[in-house]
Simulated scan of single mutants.
Amino acid sequence: MALARRLLMLVIPAFVCAAAAAVPAVAAAEPDGEDCGKAAWPLASARTRLAAPVRTVEVGGRLSLPLEGAVTLALADRASAALPFPPSRQGRESRAGFARIAVPSPGGDYQITVSDGAWLDVFADGRPLAPIAFTGVHACPGVRKSLRFRLPAGEAVLVVTDAAGSGLGMVIDPVGP
């Protein structure tokens, strides 16, 4: 019994020291004021790709999934954006745009992660699709929110409204099993 107590007296302080040493590593990965780790799913990969979009897609442009890296969707004044479908929400900001997305067969669950605040609607076969999941982070540089949609094979249309800037960075990834 004395041997067990001595072992515990050595093991417990070592465990406490190891746990204390791990805390600064976590804090260093996420500077004060950032809430990147508070998202419902990991956004680190999308955040990295959003930092360096590979190309710009004009209003009404076409994308094919899977995407290679991030893209920037150019936005215009809402009045001149010629949106093919009305947004589900009327916002305060006036910038808008849309992109047609070719979804490979058999379709599936996709995650759209965007760099800044904006309202996103996705349409397939002329009907709006409801997101199956959503996460948002207000103080995560380079990422504002991520939505998941079940996209059928064929064409989907992403409509962006209520944006403030001239472009919106986005990453569209398949959701793993």
Rank of each mutant, 00 (worst) to 15 (best):
A21C: 09
V16L: 15
S105W: 11
R100M: 08
P152A: 03
D121M: 05
S166G: 12
G167E: 00
V26S: 06
D125K: 04
S88K: 13
A153F: 08
L3F: 04
A28V: 14
V57M: 02
M9G: 02
A18F: 15
G33D: 03
P86S: 11
P86I: 02
P24N: 11
K145R: 03
D173A: 06
I172N: 01
A124S: 11
V54M: 04
G165S: 14
I101Y: 15
A44W: 01
F15I: 14
A22T: 14
A74D: 07
P106C: 15
G176R: 08
G167C: 01
Q90W: 08
A133C: 00
V26L: 13
R5H: 04
A14F: 15
A28K: 14
A14T: 01
V59G: 06
M170W: 07
G117S: 12
R55M: 11
S146T: 08
P24I: 00
M170Y: 05
A46R: 00
G136V: 00
M1R: 06
P128T: 11
F149D: 00
P104Q: 15
V103L: 05
L10V: 10
G108K: 15
A163Y: 07
P106D: 13
R95D: 07
G108F: 10
D109C: 05
A79H: 03
P87N: 01
Q90N: 12
F134T: 01
P42D: 15
M1S: 14
R92M: 09
A102K: 13
P141Q: 12
A22H: 15
D35T: 15
A46D: 11
L151W: 10
